[in-house]
């Protein structure tokens, strides 16, 4: 048995998802707390996590709901915010190559969040795992379970749960940036430095000039377009 062969199992997906689960739980907890603080019931908070399952959009949904935005305006804003996800499937499948199976993608792609995409790409780049649908199910379900349980606990704890613990609140608030930075380091290559620099610069500029959602979309597209200048064989 070759123990050095890349793992493709459900368990390998679960193991790869551990950093996401560790990061998701406190963030989802914060979401549950914020949702109940904003006047949502525990069931409503859990329902948003269960059905939408997109962290940034869920936090924005709270702001829109409490701000009294009309339903269709809120829906359009949140849908526009999640459009960036259309890039993840093709990028992942292209990274894997022709052997990528997508028979059950209708199920595992539900869990293809920013972090799951980043973790899958990082794990594949490091060569310790190889793509399989079982791997994607392990990765996605672990992250989803963490997100749902964190939301449920946060909603149960209630809106005042973290008010007396500002240091813990602050530490939890940095969990998501820390996770993204660690994921970025895991897929970093010298050839992609211009891509990363342009993506960051455009995100900052457009966020300050227009909005956070526009900044995210612009940064991703500008960075990916910069990749057109990366020579063959340099790409991550």
């Amino acid at each position: 048995m070759n123990t050095d062969a890349p793992k493709t199992s459900f368990t390998a997906g679960v193991v790869t998802a551990l950093p996401i689960a560790l990061g998701y739980f406190p963030i989802a907890f914060s979401f549950g707390v914020a949702a109940t603080r904003a006047g949502l019931s525990g069931l409503e908070a859990f329902g948003l996590s269960l059905i939408i399952y997109a962290g940034a959009a869920q936090f924005l949904a709270l702001a829109l709901i409490t701000g009294g935005a009309p339903l269709l305006v809120s829906a359009f804003t949140l849908v526009a915010m999640n459009i960036r996800h259309v890039l993840y499937g093709p990028a992942l499948i292209k990274r894997v190559g022709p052997e990528a199976r997508t028979k059950y993608a209708w199920a595992w792609a539900f869990g293809l969040t920013d972090e799951v995409f980043g973790a899958a790409l990082g794990a594949l780049a490091r060569g310790k795992v190889a793509f399989s649908e079982a791997f994607m199910f392990g990765l996605g379900l672990t992250a989803y379970a963490s997100w749902l349980s964190g939301t449920a606990l946060g909603a149960f704890a209630g809106g005042a749960a973290l008010q007396e613990y500002p240091v813990i609140d602050a530490a939890l608030g940095f969990m998501l940036p820390a996770l993204f930075l660690a994921l970025l380091l895991s897929i970093l290559s010298k050839a992609q430095l211009p891509v990363i620099a342009i993506a960051m610069a455009v995100t900052v500029a457009v966020t300050f000039a227009w909005s956070g959602t526009a900044g995210i979309l612009s940064g991703m597209v500008a960075g990916a377009l910069t990749g057109l200048l990366v020579r063959r064989g340099d790409a991550a």
Binding site: L87, A91, D114, V195, V204, A224
Partner: peptide
């Protein structure tokens, strides 16, 4: 374009 999407997306989300 697709090969650069991952690094660009994660860098963007870190900044955001």
């Amino acid at each position: 374009f697709l090969a650069s999407t991952g690094p660009a997306a994660i860098a963007t989300l870190f900044v955001a």
